[in-house]
């Protein structure tokens, strides 16, 4: 990856992270931890990978993203807003009664949201349907589906994985946000879904393991996914929950709680500092 592209993606990812903090702070609720861990991947998807046009959010040939880990909507909304699907200012309305930004993604409220999600395990099935729809219609659009690592404890994920493998949906790409934390603790403490790679491989998937915060690895993984024919690809992305905000990093308490005013100020200061360090 060219340095200039990487720098731009890093800057955009900081803007996405600021959007996550802005949204959850104003909402006084929401899920910053998993939003921050998937932020770099969401940035890459919307600013490098996906064929989407904010002026034509319903374009038939667009690539689709189904945020199966729907609670991390703040990351999706920040990426969509920065991409131009709706004004960035609206991020502050997250979770409020008249907002277009529901607590979990709704395709009927928000331009650019391709599927309503939030109940874990369901998004990947819809993504399978979209990918199959593309095949049946002879369209070449691709479908991306970020999953939580805790989310893959849901049985439906494996029903969908079996379906996608059996149907050879090579236009489908799942991304497991592997931060090893869920609400009640670490994945091993709660109900280990490990090993993730071998499980998806057993279901007929191509699996790529990467660092989910390294743009060159992210790029290589999505290129590998496109190059792989006859199998869906699962990118297992090792991430840090709360990534980019020091006091939120690797803490499961930040799964579903919003920063207070003081924490908001500190988080924004850290992100501004990170931006500044990229600009020198």
């Amino acid at each position: 990856m060219e340095d200039i592209k990487k720098l731009q993606l890093k800057k955009t990812a900081i803007e996405v992270r600021k959007g996550i903090i802005e949204g959850t702070f104003n909402a006084k609720s929401g899920h910053p931890g998993g939003s921050l861990s998937i932020a770099d991947i969401m940035t890459y998807l919307y600013f490098s990978e996906m064929n989407v046009d904010p002026n034509k959010p319903d374009c038939e040939n667009r690539d689709r993203l189904v945020l199966s880990k729907g609670h991390t909507a703040p990351a999706l909304y920040a990426a969509l807003a920065l991409k131009g699907f709706f004004p960035v200012e609206l991020i502050k309305t997250l979770r409020k009664p008249d907002s277009i930004l529901q607590g979990h993604p709704s395709m009927r409220y928000t331009p650019g949201v391709d599927m309503s999600t939030g109940s874990l395990g369901q998004g990947i099935s819809a993504a399978c349907g979209m990918a199959l729809g593309a095949k049946l219609k002879g369209k070449d659009f691709r479908v991306y589906v970020p999953l939580g690592d805790g989310e893959i404890e849901e049985g439906q994920v494996w029903e969908a994985a079996m379906f996608a493998g059996n149907r050879k949906l090579d236009n489908l790409c799942a991304i497991v946000d592997y931060n090893n934390l869920q609400i009640d603790g670490s994945l091993e403490e709660v109900n280990s879904p490990y090993p993730i790679k071998e499980k998806f491989e057993a279901f007929g998937w191509n699996v790529v393991e990467i660092c989910g915060h390294c743009f060159s690895q992210i790029e290589e993984a999505f290129e590998a996914a496109k190059a792989c024919k006859g199998k869906p690809t699962c990118i297992v992305a090792k991430t840090v929950k709360g990534k980019g905000v020091s006091f939120m990093e690797d803490k499961c308490d930040w799964h579903g709680s919003a920063p207070n005013a003081e924490q908001y100020a500190q988080a924004m200061a850290e992100l501004d500092e990170a931006m500044k360090s990229l600009e020198v």
């Binding site: 369901q122 439906q156 029903e159």
Partner: peptide, 23 residues
């Protein structure tokens, strides 16, 4: 005709996804 196998939850989700593509 698409047989989704013995996995009704997934079938409903697949149906939803297909519906978003115009079916």
């Amino acid at each position: 005709f698409i047989d989704c196998g013995i996995a009704e939850g997934n079938m409903m989700g697949v149906a939803a996804g297909l519906a978003t593509t115009g079916y």
